[in-house]
């Protein structure tokens, strides 16, 4: 047995080495870097330097506020939407189910740059189809890119568009694992379809919903692509800057790796904390 284990580990060694160098080490290293002043050459150990700056930095709190705002609004809306999509996908009345399933999943596979470009076009002030549509129903044009509130809304719309289908597919898989005869029993019990959804589907789907929520929270905490590409590096004026963007700006624009590492650890810590709270709130009653 011991011999077999040793052989197995020998086979795993190349992978473990790469894993250690490119995964474990950066994690440890960035943690140590976060305690160093990296704007001086050479770097020097100064524990309070970055972390001290963090707790008083308005740019950090702006990014934190934006990230949490997107999280609090976008994640629940998206999961609710994904649930509706999953219910529709699961309906026996639906024709061409495979096509919809593909269509809902497609945004995830589309290249980020391409999709961002299309969104910029669609929401452009004068040529965008969205403003044209608003106009036709008698609403005023919205300048999506120059005002903070529309820009935030745009980010949320884009992220939701991209990930709702993905979550819907996961929820659908969960729904399909609920046996049909449970619903038949409920039908015989004179329980309406709507009540069946709220009293059977939702409770039985809870673990899957929690799973989707956790994935989405982790994803949104790291949000980068959309504010970088669609609202042009967190514009207008930092109005859509997220923690991910702040990290990028500090690390790769200002080459201040110590501070970027501190931001990174804050993001990870928050994601873990929020997820734990979420798991605790939705824990199975004993």
């Amino acid at each position: 047995m011991r011999y077999r284990n040793a052989t197995a580990y020998r086979f795993l060694t190349p992978y473990l080495l790469i894993f250690a160098i490119f995964w474990v080490w950066p994690i440890i290293s960035s943690f140590m870097i976060s305690f160093q002043a990296t704007r001086t050459v050479p770097w020097r150990f100064a524990p309070g330097f970055n972390w001290g700056r963090l707790i008083g930095d308005p740019a950090f709190f702006n990014a934190l506020k934006n990230t949490l705002l997107i999280l609090v609004i976008q994640v629940p809306v998206m999961i609710a939407l994904a649930m509706v999509m999953a219910v529709l996908l699961n309906s026996p009345l639906l024709k061409a189910r495979g096509l919809y399933r593909f269509a809902f999943f497609a945004p995830v596979v589309v290249g980020e740059v391409a999709y961002s470009a299309v969104f910029r076009l669609m929401f452009s002030l004068d040529f965008g189809i969205v403003n044209k549509l608003l106009n036709t129903v008698g609403l005023p044009k919205i300048d999506w890119f120059s005002n903070v509130t529309p820009a935030m809304a745009l980010i949320m719309i884009a992220v939701t568009w991209r990930w709702a289908g993905y979550n819907a597919i996961i929820l659908l898989a969960g729904m399909q694992s609920i046996p049909e005869d449970v619903y038949e029993a409920a039908t015989l019990d004179r329980v309406s379809k709507l009540k069946q959804f709220f009293f059977i589907t939702l409770p039985l789907l809870k673990p899957v919903i929690v799973f989707c929520a956790v994935l989405s929270i982790i994803g949104t905490m790291q949000l980068f692509t959309e504010p970088f590409l669609i609202t042009e590096r967190g514009g207008p004026g930092g109005g859509t800057e997220t923690l991910g963007l702040l990290l990028y700006r500090q690390g790769f624009r200002s080459l201040n790796f110590g501070y970027a590492s501190a931001v990174a650890y804050t993001m990870a810590g928050l994601a873990i904390a929020i997820t734990l709270v979420q798991l605790w709130l939705t824990r199975e009653a004993k």
Binding site: P179, D181, V182, E184, A185, A186, L188, D189, R190, V191, S192, K195, F199, I200, P203, L204
Partner: peptide, 19 residues
Amino acid sequence: ALYPHMSVEQNLSFGLRMT
């Protein structure tokens, strides 16, 4: 076809409670 997330008591009474 029992409701997996309900107790026995709830399983028995579910239909009547809902209606």
